[in-house]
Design a protein around this nucleic acid. Structure first.
Lengths: 231, 231
DNA sequence: ATCTTGAAAATGTGATCACAATTTTGTGAT
DNA sequence: ATCACAAAATTGTGATCACATTTTCAAGAT
């Protein structure tokens, strides 16, 4: 709603091989994922453009793409915002993840070879390190990479864009979860998933993925937290 | 691949209350849904712009949005195309629908009131009429509307955009199915769905929706058809 | 204080232009 | 005929500009 609360977005590394539009897109996407843009805060093309030192044009295109992906919402009255969240919507998003991700994992399992399995183990070790270091941002980023690495094993895979859309919509509201990571005793669902892949046990993998998603969003069941989260 | 095959897209009704970008988007979306753009046919911004009598700008934005929705694909080499289809990908898309849509129907069922139920019956009658008239385009359009009307009953619903993305990706390859509609004896899955809603029987509704999806894509199991379809 | 109102500032939209990169085409050699 | 290659045409990108619409906000009325 308000416009005057200043926002700070960390500008992504600018790679010359990439178009400006792509760079703007990456930067804004990351800002949404990191929760740097308060939900409801009105964004204007020109504000973002000057903030990032580019012309309004690439910002326009990036905003449209992010809106199509559900990361942003174009309000009727010519305003672009990170959509507000409600408890019901949060649940629906989590349940949509559970409808899609175990299915994606099942379809990917036969394609996971030794190389990819090793890659998964490596990512999981990275998560452990990040948890030990208390680096919440790295944890969520690596966690996503863990899931992505499973799903993309399937060469005919079509669900990842849908799944990433759900991640984008949830991410701004996962900060609280990540910040209070240590409060929760986390059963290592990734270990369960890796074991299931080794055994080629589809049901076990689906269950591990579902449990991992539920654990990651468990704080939503603590009402006082969710309330604080939704402002 | 080729560029010279001429394409004809039916221009949507231009409503003055709507931006040009939106109109271009609607027109192109419809063209994709109706299979008017051959997969692999290279599209250029300027070509479409002059085809539709607008400047390149709104076309650019519409193309980006459609790409984000999976309807189009931006090739690395600066070409935009309707993505090519493979048998495997087709199956994955259908299975993704089955992962999402019964779930969406389940979550919507408690919200379907008498008004909406009447609306559903009305749409179903329209489908019968269109089938009798042999109007394949109307059948697919009304069929989508039937599903949409169920899912949108849920006010907290978040999956419709994902589902519509899957429809967009499948649609260009459903023409064959629609054209040979009469070859298949169709059990009326919509009647089953309506009965399930009346009885508030979740499992029956989920099964009816899944069966409806499978029936609609059944031709994919006739290999010679799918082959013809995929060129 | 609160609401109304109107002028000024800001905004999204869409057209046009310049430019570098890519694709296409035409020419000549084999 | 087929291929190689350079010239020409075409393309996406991004900046700038004009304009109608909307938002903002201060001055005046209640």
């Amino acid at each position: 709603m308000d416009k005057h609360s200043p926002i700070t977005i960390t500008l992504a590394q600018r790679d010359d091989a990439v178009t400006i539009t792509q760079w703007v897109y990456n930067t804004l996407r990351q800002a949404v994922l990191l929760g740097q843009i308060p939900p409801g805060r009105a964004l204007t093309i020109r504000e973002l453009a000057s903030l990032m030192g580019v012309s309004p044009m690439p910002v326009r295109e990036a905003l449209r793409q992010l809106s199509a992906e559900g990361a942003l919402e174009i309000l009727g009255n010519r305003r672009v915002v990170v959509p507000e969240m409600t408890a019901m919507k949060f649940n629906e998003l989590v349940e949509a993840r559970i409808a899609l991700e175990p299915h994606a994992a099942l379809k990917a399992m036969p394609y996971i070879d030794a190389t990819r399995l090793a890659e998964l183990r490596n990512i999981d070790r990275g998560i452990d390190r990040a948890e030990a270091a208390g680096d919440a941002e790295a944890v969520t980023s690596l966690n996503q990479q863990f899931h992505r690495t499973i799903y993309t094993a399937n060469p005919h895979q079509v669900t990842l864009p849908l799944i990433e859309s759900l991640w984008l919509q949830l991410a701004p509201f996962m900060r609280v979860s990540a910040e209070s990571l240590e409060e929760y005793y986390q059963i290592d669902r990734h270990q369960e998933a890796l074991a299931a892949i080794e055994k080629q046990d589809p049901m076990a993998l689906a269950l591990a993925i579902e449990a991992d998603i539920r654990d990651g969003c468990a704080f939503a069941k603590a009402p006082e937290k969710l309330k604080r989260l939704l402002g």
